[in-house]
Every structure is written in structure tokens, then in C-alpha cells.
């Protein structure tokens, strides 16, 4: 069976935030460049996964972007409603990240890696 690691073991930061009043953007900033490269190569964080985690149409996932300089991956979705519109639950969009904490990343353990 392929081994996995929970995303929480791999990141310094997972956060959500408005990117303007019509989008919410998610940031994953990894603990090291090695970890980042491994997650990036696994392609596990992609449009389909984000759509599944939030139960939204894949068309509403605007982009998933790798940002090498910051060892970060960024995903952006269309807001369910513009920030502060009637029915709003999170004006700043800063508490929409929790479903991302369950992501499991395929992780081939190297021989010399300790438990």
C-alpha cells in the first residue's frame, strides 16, 4: 500500500483569504524547498481536488499555481457570493481553509528516513 503524509506535517502555513471581494485564495507554504518540490511533483493539489473538498463545480476553481520562489502552492476559487453580500458567513474569507487540512500526500519513504 502506498504511504501518505498528512499535509499538516508538510506545511508552515495553510490559509484562506479574500483576493478581492469576488474570490477566495488558499495558500500552502511548505516547510522546505525539498518538501515543496515533492508535493509539486505529486500533483496531488489540483483543480479537481479543490473542487471535491469544497463540493463546488470545477469551473469555479480559477487556478492552482505553483510558486517556486516562496515554496508555495496557491489555489483560488470563485466566492459563493461577493464579500459581505446577504447570506455571507466570512467577510474576510479567512476561515475557509479547514477542508484543506485533510489532504493526504503520497509519500515514498526513503530508506534513511526515520519514523
Amino acid at each position: 500500500m502506498a504511504e501518505t503524509k498528512n499535509i499538516r506535517e508538510l506545511v508552515d502555513v495553510i490559509r484562506s483569504k479574500n483576493a478581492g471581494p469576488y474570490e477566495i485564495t488558499f495558500d500552502f507554504i511548505f516547510k522546505s524547498f525539498d518538501i515543496y518540490e515533492k508535493v509539486k511533483a505529486s500533483k496531488v493539489i489540483n483543480e479537481r481536488l479543490i473542487a471535491e473538498l469544497y463540493d463546488i463545480a470545477i469551473e469555479d476553481v480559477i487556478s492552482v499555481i505553483n510558486y517556486d520562489q516562496a515554496k508555495a502552492i496557491k489555489a483560488t476559487i470563485v466566492r459563493p457570493r461577493s464579500s459581505g453580500a446577504v447570506g455571507e458567513t466570512d467577510v474576510y474569507g479567512a476561515q475557509q481553509h479547514a477542508p484543506l487540512l485533510s489532504i493526504e500526500v503520497p509519500w515514498e519513504r526513503s530508506k534513511y528516513e526515520e519514523d
Partner: peptide, 27 residues
């Protein structure tokens, strides 16, 4: 370098191309 690079991500959909008045900041 990471605190500054990471900040470039903040509140932006695409960290490499920032749209503004009259053009794009290309990073």
C-alpha cells in the same frame, strides 16, 4: 527571502502577474 516571497502570495490569485492600473507587475 521566504517571508518576503511568501508575502507576495497574500490576497492575490496569481502571485507572478499582478494586474494594476495601466499594466501588470510581472514577477
Amino acid at each position: 527571502t521566504t517571508s518576503v516571497a511568501a508575502h507576495t502570495l497574500y490576497e492575490k490569485a496569481n502571485p507572478l502577474q499582478l494586474h494594476g492600473p495601466g499594466g501588470i507587475i510581472d514577477l
